[in-house]
Design a protein around this nucleic acid. Structure first.
Lengths: 333, 333
DNA sequence: CTGAAAGCGCTTACAG
DNA sequence: CTGAAAGCGCTTACAG
């Protein structure tokens, strides 16, 4: 086990081929002029030794790593898994490698991820910042690190981002519930992100336009640590309980539906439920979930394309894309 | 944009602090003896300059990268997302970073991933090999690369792995369907992996023990490219059509349920469905899916622990863990 | 066409 | 306690 532990280096290859190191390098990289016979000798030697170039050393001299850092909340949420998949598809096609970090909605972890990514000298970063008022995005801006935000933006101006129209998400979900006759609509929102903020604004706006008051007691900010079950049991045991729940995402909606089922509350008759993201399984739930489609895969694809453009071409001002959400009405409302 | 492009180096820090490079290095890493006042000066300089050490350079001299490569089929399958999450949880706690590749069941891509991972000099690899007769695992063995297999093993002996008891998975799923009175059980199996092989053996064994013949026309190997819909429509339009479908995983079962719904076939009355993996949403499907629980997160955790042990302690023979699957009976059967 | 030398950013003996 | 030097594995001018 200890014997072959050392990696073969270009020096070994050069020696076996009987040439200088520089020549070996040129032959291996098809750069500069190398006589055909020399090249063959080098290639054969590399083959025989099972030579695998050390990209650390290479990147050190190039100053580029061909790596892109990606920071999201958690890959366990299929929404992000799909976004990441979109990112990956374009990175792979351009010879880039993806380095993934999950922040789990913890700004400290997010900062750590950024630092580690910088240490690794990734060429750029794609990420979904936890907070709208993000210190971490500020850090990226100040340190001139190429990045594009995905799914969430921040107060910082002139940043590149690809997001959904979250105001609209909140608005159409709420409007739909209002049309269905609901007046007490519980909003299980997420945390400090731009999405949470904007969806909340949309929710408010819809209520206001319809002439209703916004009841702050019907609005909750969930963190990954929030125990939804006791919270919901509490809320639903009040006498004027909500008749509908708008969930920030399908992941939360799934939780909510499990709880409602356990509480023996009929969906949508006793409580209606709306989610967001249109995850794969939602159409087959019992009942099928009313939700909002966001082009997840495309979101990742676009973000990656923008970043690579920044890196490979000249930078021409911020690119900001806002994707249109689409309400999908099913039997849960 | 062009100005701050260059990273601050230890040289810059040393100069600002008015010390030599070696001293700066020692101060920054808390190594060797450095006078308190010197250390302070260096730390202040680093702080002021926003110094972030270059881990490429560092790894070059250490010969270790503190990175672990992970190769799975696709992060889009929540089964693997959960396994990866388990892996990540232990890596993070030990200061390791995870580099993720999706093979998409393409052995060529798998090989490429391994090569790229080697170029990056990851300290070890955790992966779910596509094929039972894997050339790629052979390559790892021959090149003495520390690795542990997860979810799938190979013909290679003496490898470290953490898998489910897939024979049993196939057996208990089939036995359950037989008990429910099904005789024509369609098996939508996956491809060339050990899991596929062993689940098939389990399926066969269950039929044999119950005294039934195995009908090869009821066994299909799906690749990621297989269009399940036409296939299923075809199979279900035969006169002696199967009355039950055993799906390799919940992901496939979800597809199948969608198709059955579209075909207006009642589950379980007209066709029963069994999945495997016990994904989060399966209990809430319509109908709730009978499936098999496999400790996904634990699988990842264990694999990561084994690998780190190999790397940090002496290597003591192969560690092979087989996790117990558990049938979860719900309304789809 | 080829090779010795310098350099990428860092760490670690080695002398002081 | 401190700094110059060598070296990690590679590439790229530079001189032949």
């Amino acid at each position: 086990m200890k014997l072959k532990d050392k990696h073969v280096t270009i020096k070994d290859v050069a020696k076996l081929a009987g040439v200088g190191i520089a020549t070996a390098s040129r032959a291996l990289n098809n750069k500069g002029d190398v006589s055909p016979s020399t090249r063959r000798k080098v290639l054969e030697a590399a083959q025989k030794l099972g030579y695998v170039p050390n990209s650390l050393a290479r990147s050190l001299v190039y100053g580029k790593t061909k790596k892109i850092g990606v920071i999201i909340t958690t890959i366990l949420n299929p929404f992000y898994a799909t976004v990441v998949s979109g990112i990956e598809s374009v990175l792979a096609s351009k010879g880039y490698t993806l380095v993934l970090y999950n922040s789990n909605e913890d700004p400290y972890k997010e900062k750590e991820a950024i630092l580690t990514l910088r240490q690794q000298r990734v060429d750029g970063i794609i990420f979904a910042p936890i907070e709208y008022e993000s210190q971490n995005v500020k850090y990226l801006v100040e340190n001139n690190i190429p990045f594009v935000l995905v799914a969430r933006k921040t107060q910082e101006e002139n940043t590149n981002f690809v997001v959904a129209d979250d105001f609209k998400v909140g608005k159409i979900a709420t409007e739909h519930l209002l049309e269905k006759g609901h007046r007490r609509i519980l909003f299980l929102n997420s945390w400090k992100s731009s999405s949470a903020r904007l969806r909340l604004e949309g929710y408010r706006e819809a209520l206001k336009e319809a002439g209703f008051l916004v009841n702050p007691k019907l609005i909750y900010s969930l963190t990954p640590d929030t125990e939804i079950r006791p919270l919901l049991e509490d809320i639903l045991s009040t006498k004027n309980r909500p008749t509908a729940i708008f969930c920030f995402c399908d992941s939360i909606a799934l939780e909510v539906m499990k709880i409602l089922k356990a509480m023996n509350l009929k969906i949508p008759d006793e409580v209606a439920v709306v989610g967001c993201d249109n995850l794969d399984y939602t159409e087959l739930l019992n009942p099928p979930l009313t939700t909002i489609e966001i082009s997840k895969f495309e979101m990742g694809v676009t973000a990656a394309k923008i970043l690579l453009e920044m890196l490979e071409a000249e930078n021409k001002g911020p690119i900001q894309q806002i994707l249109e959400p689409k309400l999908i009405i099913r039997a849960s409302t």
